[in-house]
């Protein structure tokens, strides 16, 4: 056991690359086993040329751009609505009692399951997609805003009452800044959910541009290479957005602690 451990430790520096490389080699090997295999195990070179084809025709950028746009708009609408509702629930006990139960049960409805309903009510275009994405972003922000504001140390609130703050002042000067870390966490979750539901709604609405639509078209024409390029770009874009939001969060929080 120790020897194995020792050996594995020696290759530690590049061991993270070992698996992807192995997978790639096996993949390429499988792709050379005949026509029946190339259907799933597309040769790596073909994935490469698929990528070049998608970039040159502009399809990848157009579709990715559309998907990103839907996510960002939905995140902004849902996020700020969530901030508002979460803040309201934290400041007003009545609002909390009225909205809370509804919120906690509705959160359990699989969002994409609402698509047939939303399509009938609002149509099959961008508006409906944004509605779904906004809802996806809304839920986590409400939760984290509420919990962030509720979790504030009591002495801050006492100071505020000594200063005779009204509810609005309390919200802006005490609750909001103190809850920022939690709210940012909420936005991080919201981003992840918004991204998932954008891709999901593109697969289910199947109208308009978007990476989801691109994948569906590729699936129809049995173009596994394009499907793979789309999946990878969804993953990379998600990673990139996550990283930038997390930087923004660090930046915001550092500014706070400096003050």
């Amino acid at each position: 056991m120790n020897i194995i451990n020792q050996f594995l430790l020696n290759v530690k520096h590049f061991s993270g690359l070992l698996l992807p490389v192995t997978v790639a080699v096996v993949w390429e090997f499988m792709s050379r086993q005949g026509d029946a295999y190339t259907y799933i195990f597309v040769p790596l070179s073909q994935i490469g040329s698929g990528l070049v084809e998608l970039i040159q025709s502009g399809e990848l950028l157009i579709n990715l751009g559309a998907t990103l746009q839907t996510t960002v708009i939905g995140l902004l609408i849902g996020g700020f609505a969530g901030l508002f509702v979460g803040g309201l629930m934290a400041v007003s006990p009545l609002a909390n009692k009225l909205i809370g139960p509804l919120y906690h049960t509705m959160r359990q409805v699989p969002l994409l399951g609402l698509i047939p309903l939303i399509a009938l009510w609002f149509g099959n275009d961008l508006f409906s997609k944004i509605l779904i994405v906004s809802l996806a972003a809304f839920y986590p922000v409400v939760l984290n805003t509420f919990e962030g504001m509720r979790g504030i140390e009591h002495k801050y609130v006492e100071v505020a009452s000594v200063l005779k703050f009204n509810r609005l002042q309390l919200l802006i000067h005490v609750l909001l800044p103190a809850a920022t870390p939690s709210i940012m966490t909420g936005f991080m979750h919201a981003l992840a959910f918004a991204w998932v539901s954008t891709v999901g709604s593109e697969l289910l609405f199947s109208t308009g541009p978007g990476v989801g639509g691109l994948m569906l078209m590729a699936q129809e024409s049995s173009r596994m290479d394009i499907v793979i390029v789309a999946v990878v770009s969804i993953g990379l874009t998600g990673l990139l957005m996550n990283a930038s939001l997390s930087h923004l969060r660090q930046y915001l929080l550092r500014w706070r602690s400096v003050r």
Binding site: A81, V85, I99, P101, L102, Y103, T105, M106, Q108, V109, L114, L117, W121, F122, L131, L135, F138
Partner: peptide, 22 residues
């Protein structure tokens, strides 16, 4: 009965929806 609420999004959205459909 109480699962009814899952049928529509939060009240705010319901209002937006109603306005839109009106």
């Amino acid at each position: 009965n109480f699962s009814i609420k899952s049928e529509t999004p939060v009240i705010a959205w319901l209002l937006v929806g109603l306005a839109f459909m009106f």
